[in-house]
Design a protein around this nucleic acid. Structure first.
Length: 421
DNA sequence: TCTGGGGTCCTAGGACCC
DNA sequence: TCTGGGGTCCTAGGACCC
């Protein structure tokens, strides 16, 4: 390492810290009797649902996360099934975050059990990367009682992929310049963002390993897969090409959406039960909006039938809200408009997005009379263009009259395009 | 062996505006 | 009378991740 190597002007040192079998390990802290056993977290063996996490012991029997619980029970009958405890995981996640914060000011939790650290320029404080990683590893165990794996590289991508290779309970450093060599023998599926579908596409082209991908012309990849193909070419070389990976570590952004959903243990077509669920989900979403001081402009219903066909229907409000009643009102309207009556429902969901930090629009009438007036006038003009002079009454309370007229005149409902000049 | 719940990002089409 | 295209907002769906 003391040899003369010309390094790029700015070489980042990124750590990816990934907790090992996180949910299982947290459950073991609360019940040490689980240690060393085949444990499945996510629900009971006869429930509708999937595995959230499996202990390494259970994994030996082919059990893995996202597998249906009933399948897991068949593959590993002696496994202990445990319900998940989100509060426990959040609490431990905060402890993990605190430990990481003592190593770098630039820490970014990518999910409840993994984080990126920008360790560039911390040598003086923590020593070279491997030493820092081992110290981190020990302190994590000492402070939280949990094992983690650490991947180190010059990009988020390399750090992420190498932490996966380091598992369980290991540390792996990819020396600058060795990125392509490290990636080449790995399956394309190891690249974050390449899932089942993309893998199938790539296999069809005879591309199985990252090395195969790196040998391809960029133009061919972008021709076949568009923008994504181009990013893929960069990833094959170990670069944080495009999208989220390209962002600075620790520039954490607020939530973009909040949602809750529920799958029934048995499908139901009982409207009062369905609407009660929607009410409950709306309340949960509303509460989280208020907790986070967000106002949502768009609400969305999710509906899944018995046969797994799923539809989503959204509505954007005139003014953003955080009120349960408003959310529920819109969601119920969407539900009544779209549910095929009598057809059993498997899942319902309520989703809120397009956040603002203020209720804004609410007082537009008072606060910004001019704008409001202008909008109303413009709207009235469009009405006249469509339906003639008599369609809009101006005299008494334009707002009310305008609204009513819209609903009186079926031809003015959405779907009709304005004639072009 | 039927398939959770919480998210993010991307694409594509239509409406609408200039 | 016919014809263009960019930009933004909204909606629906899907891939992907943990």
């Amino acid at each position: 390492m003391s040899a003369v190597i010309s390094m790029p002007a700015f070489t980042r040192t990124i750590f990816h810290v990934d907790m090992d079998a996180f949910f299982v390990s947290v459950e073991e802290l609360f019940d040490p009797a689980l240690k060393g056993k085949a444990v499945v977290v996510g629900g009971q063996r006869d429930e509708r649902g999937v595995v959230s996490a499996a202990s390494y012991e259970a994994r030996k029997f082919g059990v893995h996360s996202a597998m249906p619980l009933r399948t897991a029970a068949k593959q590993c009958p002696h496994a202990i099934f445990v319900n998940g405890h989100p509060e426990r995981y959040r609490e431990c996640s905060e402890k993990v975050y605190k430990v990481l914060g003592t190593f770098s000011p630039q820490v970014e939790m990518a999910s409840i059990d993994e984080a990126y650290l920008d360790m560039t320029g911390t040598d003086r404080l923590h020593g070279p990367p491997l030493k820092a990683a081992h110290t981190l590893h020990q302190r994590m165990k000492a402070d939280t009682g949990l094992n983690c794996s650490v991947g180190i590289g010059t990009s988020r991508l390399i750090a992420k992929v190498s932490s996966a290779q380091a598992k369980p309970n290991g540390v792996l450093w990819i020396v600058p310049g060795e990125e392509a060599k490290f990636l080449a023998p790995l399956d394309v599926r190891e690249i974050p963002g390449v899932g089942k579908v993309m893998e199938t596409h790539l296999h069809a082209l005879g591309i199985k390993k990252v090395g195969d991908l790196a040998r391809l012309e960029e133009s061919e990849l972008s021709d076949r897969f568009g923008k994504w193909g181009l990013a893929l070419a960069g990833k094959a070389r170990g670069e944080d090409a495009g999208g989220w990976f390209d962002t600075e570590v620790g520039a954490d952004v607020g939530a973009k959406s909040i949602s809750h959903e529920h799958t029934y243990n048995e499908d139901t077509a009982d409207i009062s039960q369905l609407e009660a669920t929607l009410m409950r989900l709306s309340e949960m979403v509303g509460r989280r909006l208020r907790e986070s001081s967000f106002y949502a402009r768009t609400v969305q219903l999710k509906l899944r039938y018995k046969d797994f066909t799923t539809l989503t229907r959204a509505h954007t409000l005139a003014a953003p809200t955080q009120l349960d009643t408003e959310i529920f009102g819109q969601i119920r309207a969407l539900f009544r408009k779209n549910w095929k009556k009598g057809v059993p429902v498997r899942l319902l969901g309520v989703h809120a997005s397009s956040f603002t930090s203020q209720p804004d629009q609410i007082n537009l009438l008072e606060g910004n009379r001019q704008e409001r007036w202008k909008d109303a006038m413009a709207a009235a003009d469009r009405m006249r263009d469509k339906f003639g002079e008599s369609s809009v009454g101006l005299a008494a309370g334009l707002r009310g009259t305008f609204r009513e007229r819209i609903h009186e005149n079926p031809a003015s409902m959405p779907g009709k395009k304005k004639p072009r000049s």
